[in-house]
Structure formats: structure tokens, C-alpha cells
């Protein structure tokens, strides 16, 4: 079944294209989302490791 599907797909250039397009999608989406974040949230996240243990 899979063999048939992949065989008739005709070449594998689509795979390289698919890979690049998916990466582009992931990369662009993450950039857009990151730059839409508000700075207070980002500052809170960045300071998480610096919090000292509370007794």
C-alpha cells in the first residue's frame, strides 16, 4: 500500500520541497509569535532561573 503510494508519487523532489516549506512555516510562525509576546511575560520567563529558593 505505502509502497504503491510512494512509487506513484513520481520522484522524491516533493520531499525536499515539503521539508523546506515545513521548516519555513515553523520558523516564520515561531518568529511571528515570539515578537507578538508582551515584554512583561518575556521578562518573567527570562528571570525564572534567577529566583533564589524561598524558605
Amino acid at each position: 500500500m505505502y509502497k504503491y503510494i510512494l512509487d506513484v508519487a513520481g520522484g522524491i523532489n516533493w520531499m525536499a520541497l515539503f521539508a523546506l516549506m515545513t521548516f519555513l512555516f515553523v520558523f516564520v510562525t515561531s518568529i511571528i509569535l515570539v515578537f507578538r509576546k508582551n515584554n512583561d511575560h518575556i521578562n518573567h520567563m527570562a528571570s525564572l532561573p534567577l529566583e533564589e529558593d524561598q524558605n
Binding site: 515545513t22 521548516f23 515553523v26 520558523f27 515561531s30 518568529i31 515570539v34 515578537f35 509576546k37 518575556i42 521578562n43 520567563m45 527570562a46 528571570s47 532561573p49 534567577l50
Partner: peptide, 27 residues
């Protein structure tokens, strides 16, 4: 990302960059 800010006593330079670093790298 945890121990370097701890040792330097300051937050990571760009948290936004760290997010892009993560998704870009693992993909």
C-alpha cells in the same frame, strides 16, 4: 540556559531568541 544565567547572575540575553533557537534546532 539554566546554569549560565545562574553563574552570570543575569537573565539570558534574549529569551525571544532562545525560543527561535529551540524550534529551529529541533526541527
Amino acid at each position: 540556559y539554566y546554569f549560565l544565567p545562574k553563574a552570570a547572575k543575569r537573565p539570558v540575553y534574549s529569551y525571544k531568541l532562545s525560543i527561535i533557537h529551540f524550534w529551529g534546532l529541533i526541527f
